[in-house]
Every structure is written in C-alpha cells, then in structure tokens.
Amino acid sequence: MEKRELICIGCPLGCPVTVTMEEGQVVKVEGNTCKRGDDYARKEVTNPTRIVTSTVTVEGGKDVTVSVKTRSDVPKGKIFECVKSLKGIVVKAPVHIGDVIVANAADTGVDMIATSNVYEK
C-alpha cells in the first residue's frame, strides 16, 4: 500500500486529496469534495501530463526569440527532456505559429511547435 498526497487543481477550493495505491492501481481516493477531484487524482497518479512551453533563438528576424510549446501534453517525467531537446536550436526567420521546431521531442511522439510569428528583419 502506498499513499500519495495531492492538491486538486480542478477549482480554487484546492482540496487536499489522498490517493491509496496498490501495485500501481488506485484503490481509494479520499479528501476530494467532487467528481473532478477523483478524476484529477486518478490521472495525476497514474499518468500525469503537462504542456511544455519555452523559447528558441531566431536568426534574421524582427525578434531574437520565438516561443514554442509541445503540440499536446507529454508525460510529466519527460518535461526536462523536452526542454533539453531545444538546446542549441536556432531557427531562421520567418517563423509562423504552428511551424514544427523539433519533431518528436524527446521521443514522446509529440512535436514542439512555434506559438508566435517572427517576421524577417
């Protein structure tokens, strides 16, 4: 039996939720005051995911950086690998929203894409 303490982010109430796990399976969720807390806790202990956002350097553009994100959420444990996949990357202007900056970042199967437009100088 393993217990995990979480704070639900479903609403501002921020219920302290305790999840009891057995052999990787959720056996009990306590402390939540609504269904959303239960859903959040189960996903958070079995498969937590996040969108990763950062910037990379641009050459020849009106701006020196372009903002990027993972196109969809990636496993929480892969966040830093996704950030590292951007190291040393320099793109040439113009860059447009949705352009792929790193394909299949950190073998997550998810691309990192541009989230801003940088036009040529």
């Binding site: 903002s67 990027v68 994100k69 801003s116």
Partner: peptide, 25 residues
C-alpha cells in the same frame, strides 16, 4: 500576452488552451 509564453489562455473565449502569443495573434 506576447511575453506570456505559457499555456492556459482562451479556455472561455476559444474553448481551447492557448499560449499568450497565440491568443494575441
């Protein structure tokens, strides 16, 4: 918004989660 590169914008307006620059765009 142009410097708020994190996500979480637009859930009410566009029913999807955007970054700041995308919302502004």
């Amino acid at each position: 918004l142009n410097q708020c590169i994190h996500n979480g914008f637009g859930l009410h307006t566009f029913k999807e989660e955007l970054t700041g620059p995308e919302y502004a765009a």
